[in-house]
């Protein structure tokens, strides 16, 4: 069955497995959404429909939950997900300037993705690494004790890495 998005059959099989695993447990919707997002990287409507049918809950409820929580995405994120911590400790140490700098260089706003799909930018809540404030996370990599001038070199590292991959 085609679900009308970019997913392959492999992914939809995994989704079915997730649904089957939690079908009978109570209050499992959020857990299923977490795991489904692991598979797809985001939660397109087609996936939400499948989950609604599988768990036998109304689609409106699934959509309601997805849009309530900030960690569920309706749109795909970049290959490199940039999260700038805007928790208080980072904020008073100048995280705002770092966020602006990244936004300026990549020409995207928070929640957006660069047209080439490489970077997406989000402000995030405290990641709990306040000792390293201000902190930026790019995927799982944490960059701490930053100043705005460090930003170009960090982004360039990923751009170069991509260029290398393209060559190879």
């Amino acid at each position: 069955m085609s679900c009308g998005c970019c997913c392959t059959d492999n992914k939809s099989q995994e989704l079915d497995k997730i649904i089957a695993k939690y079908k009978d447990s109570r209050g499992a919707l959020i857990t299923v959404l977490h795991e489904a997002q692991e598979v797809y990287g985001y939660l397109p409507l087609s996936v939400q429909k499948r989950i609604a049918e599988g768990l036998n809950v109304p689609l409106s409820e699934v959509y309601g939950v997805v849009t309530f929580y900030t960690q569920f995405f309706l749109n795909p994120k970049g290959k490199y997900k940039i999260n700038v911590c805007l928790g208080t400790a980072c904020y008073v140490k100048g995280a705002g300037q770092i966020y602006d700098k990244i936004s300026e260089i990549l020409k995207i706003k928070g929640g957006e993705c660069t047209p080439d799909g490489l970077f997406s930018l989000d402000a995030c809540r405290c990641v709990g690494a306040c000792g390293l404030a201000p902190v930026v996370m790019i995927n799982d990599e944490v960059y701490g004790r930053l100043v705005a001038d460090d930003v170009p070199a960090i982004l360039q590292k990923y751009i170069d890495q991509e260029a290398e991959l393209a060559k190879a």
């Binding site: 109570r26 209050g27 499992a28 919707l29 959020i30 857990t31 959404l33 977490h34 409820e61 309601g64 939950v65 309530f68 929580y69 900030t70 960690q71 569920f72 809540r125």
Partner: peptide, 25 residues
């Protein structure tokens, strides 16, 4: 274990329980 999904209000006790139930917190 139940995982949150990024909603500050879920730290409030009744919201937290609603979220454990798999609903909007």
């Amino acid at each position: 274990i139940r995982l949150g999904a990024g909603a500050f209000v879920c730290g409030e006790e009744t919201a937290l329980m609603t979220s454990i139930e798999g609903k909007r917190g």
